[in-house]
Each structure stands twice: as C-alpha cells, then as structure tokens.
Design a binder for these strands. Structure first.
Lengths: 238, 238
DNA sequence: AAGTGGTCTAGACCACTCT
DNA sequence: GAGTGGTCTAGACCACTTA
C-alpha cells in the first residue's frame, strides 16, 4: 500500500516489537547498520525510527542507541484515529454492533453547529450501539455531510464505516480533533445503553477532516462510565 | 535554549499562528521560499513544517502548499505534557493550589506497583488540590523516586514542580504515558474536593519517564466529573 | 509548464557515551 | 578513539495541482 522505504522499515520494526520479536529494553541496530541492511540512506532510516519513537515503540538515546519500550503492548483504543472495529479486533473481545438508524435527516441546531453548516441542511445520521461481552456500553452517533457520502446503508453501518469511506469512496481522512468530557446521561442513552443506574456518560466528540481541510464528519461516542478508558503516549517537545 | 535552525522556523510560525498573525486558512510560504528566507536547506524547513503539522498548526497539501489550521487556539489542558500551572495561566482563570502533604513515606502496595519498586521503599508523596474559581475541583497525588529528587518543600509544591525538576534539578523529562478512566470517589476525594454529591471522579494516571528510560514519577490527577475536559489532536498515520 | 510538497541520497560536522 | 544519534546540506526525482 505504501511502498516507501521508510515505511517498510517502520512496519518491520513496529511488528517485531508488537509481537515480542524484540523484547522491551533491547537495543535495535544502529542507524548506520540499518541503512546498510536496508540499502537506504541514514536519513531515510532516521525517518522510520522517528516514527517508531513518536508512536511509543522505541526510545533514542544520543551516544548509545535506540531501545525498545514497554508501552507498545498496552496501546489502547481511542488514541490516534482508530475505529471501533479495529479496536475490538485488536483486543480480541466479543463485540457486536447494533444499528438503530441510518437516515438522511435535517440537521438540528446543535449538529449544524458542530458541522459548521446551516441548520436544517441534510446530513446522514447513523446511530449505533456497541455491545461488548453482552452489555451495550457505547453509543455512537455519527453525522456525515451528504456531499461527500452519497449512500449509506444499515449493512455498511454494521461493518466499518471507515473501511467504506476510505476504500470504497476513496475519501482520505487527514486529521481529527477529539474532546473528552463527562455529561449527564440523556433518555436516549438510557434507552440504548445498559447504564445500570449510572447518572453520567463519558462523551467523546470527534471532528474528522479530509485532505482538503473540510470538516465532513462529526461523531459523538457516548461511553458507560465504568467501561471507558483512554490511553495516551506523549513525548516532550524536542 | 535550542539554537537549531528548524527550531527557529518552527517557533516563528507557531507563534505567528497562535497570536493570529497569520489567519486560519491562509497559505504560508512554500518550502523553497522558506529555505531561502532562512538561509536553510529545504529538508531543514521540512523538519520545521513537519512539527507544525504534527502539532495541529498547519496542514500540508501536495501540489498546493501549507495552510494554517483553526485548531491552535482551542488547544487545551492535558494534551501532551503540560502542567497545571502552564494550563491555568494559558486559560487566564483564577486558580489556587492547596498543598496538603509533602513528605517522604514508605510506598504502599499500589503505589509501589505503579512505580515498579519494592513495597515499603521510600517515595516522595505530594498531595495538592487545585481550586478554580473558588471550587476545589482537582486532586493531584504525586509520587517521586527519592533517588532523583532529594528535596521537596511545600513551597516548591505550591509552585510548579515541573519547573523545579527541569530547571533546578536539571532532570530531563522524556516521555509519559497517560491513562484516563472514571472511578468511584474515595473518602479522600470527598474530603479534599468540592464534589457536590457526584459519585465518581475522572482519574488521570500519569507515568513520567526520564531520558534514560527510567520511570521516576507517578501522578494521579483526580478531577470532578463536570469540570473535566481533554482535547486531542490526531493525524492519520502517514 | 511551472510550482508545490513527498521521498531519497551521500556526505558532512557535531555532541554524546563507552572503553 | 570508536560508535552512536542529532543537525544540516545540495541536489535529485517523483506525484500532484494549477494555469
């Protein structure tokens, strides 16, 4: 898919580290060694190692070398731009998606505000709940601009919408902004989730932008309090 | 502090964008133009622009140019490695820190587990609550390895511990892992925070590592539900 | 066709760590 | 002093956008 040299190096090592092929704390070959074995220049190797470092796979120490970190395994859901499907597969948990709604509707005032469009303009509304180990713990409410997404069906919504957008529609997602907060549960939350009398839900608002900088999707992911977790890996500026 | 060329370029533009000197949507000069004006090579310029892009300041489009994004202003608290003090200053809100404890104590089983040390080993324990606009809404519990931090005083704890660590002790923080979850409030939470009968708190566990890959600080930041917010900016892989 | 960003190279010098 | 990662260069070719 991406035939770049740095990408190959990155993936080789990301994989080796993820599946334990290289244990935590181990030293990986030096940049010049890697350059030789891959027949690449050192700058290209450095690009790959920079990515590995950024994503928490390795740690580089001047004068010493690059070392495998212990965080890769614990990498969890929502960090970056991972879909529910990718996540639950990665975790190997039994999960199911219930599609409640897949319709074109006029945008409410709130939704229009989130998507920065006119109130009443048509948007796709997709409402799904996610069942993990028999309990409905996540409620996903997705809104798409119809200019970009002509057709959505419950079948597509039942699988990965991301897959459909990226591979079938060839929409290229570029970046996203996420906001996490905790809010009182709505009647809709109570109807579509197994809330067990919990009064609040964790709300993750996700604004997704395309390559051309246009906002085209707004997602509200509402999680049952006790089933929510978010993990973040951060490097000091550089 | 960092006299590198790419760093200068990065800071010049980060600043211009942050204070509105370049409006959102505007195009910044091309890489070759920037290379010329800064007397640098294009690769060096690209390094700076890569950082700007990663941090949500700009967006690069092949064949077109680099454009200023609209997200810079909203950048919020906990993303990255920002301290409470930096944050509240940035937000311009009235805040106060109450220091409850600054002591060397034997590590409990739980704390020892988090810091990966022997139970009963001595650690620094700092407990502070953060008052924002008259309400105590955050409880910070910090634990430091005494090998790295010899002395801590309530005065230091009342200001920025990060400042002290980085500038006085010259400890270089390298990366951190953050976990966010929601948990039932403890009696301690109820005693030191103004919880208003809320049953749960948002817990942010923060593991801080030094340049040499050693874990040296564990922080538990406990937030009142309704005052918690987290914003994240994520780019699709590349 | 001209301009843009994306990838890659071969080589240089530096600061740091280890022995 | 040998080895490591960090910065930087000058130039090349490519894919893409715009005119």
């Amino acid at each position: 898919m991406n035939a770049n040299i740095y990408w190959n190096i990155y993936n080789d090592y990301a994989e080796k580290i993820q599946n334990g092929g290289i244990p935590a704390g181990a030293k990986i070959p030096s940049e010049s060694e890697l350059a030789e074995t891959y027949g690449a220049s050192r700058e290209t190797v450095r690009k790959a190692l920079g990515l590995l470092s950024q994503n928490g796979y390795i740690h580089k120490v001047k004068g010493k070398g690059s070392f495998v970190l212990d965080l890769g395994r614990m990498k969890f859901p929502i960090t970056g731009l991972i879909s529910f499907k990718e996540m639950s597969e990665k975790m190997g948990r039994k999960s199911r998606t219930l599609v409640h709604k897949t319709e074109r509707v006029p945008a409410s005032r709130v939704i229009a505000g989130h998507l920065d469009i006119q109130q009443g303009a048509t948007v796709w509304e997709v409402i799904r709940s996610r069942e993990i180990e028999g309990e409905r713990v996540i409620l996903d409410k997705d809104y798409f601009l119809p200019e970009r997404v002509e057709l959505l069906t419950p079948e597509i919504a039942g699988n990965s919408i991301y897959d459909y957008l990226e591979h079938t529609l060839n929409l290229s997602i570029s970046y996203a902004k996420k906001e996490i907060s905790v809010e009182p549960a709505t009647p809709e939350d109570r109807a579509l989730l197994d809330l067990n009398n919990l009064s609040h839900v964790v709300v993750v608002r996700n604004y997704v932008y395309l390559e051309d900088t246009t906002l085209f999707q707004y997602t509200e992911s509402r999680h049952r309090l006790d089933k929510f977790q978010f993990v973040d890996f951060a490097r000091r500026v550089r």
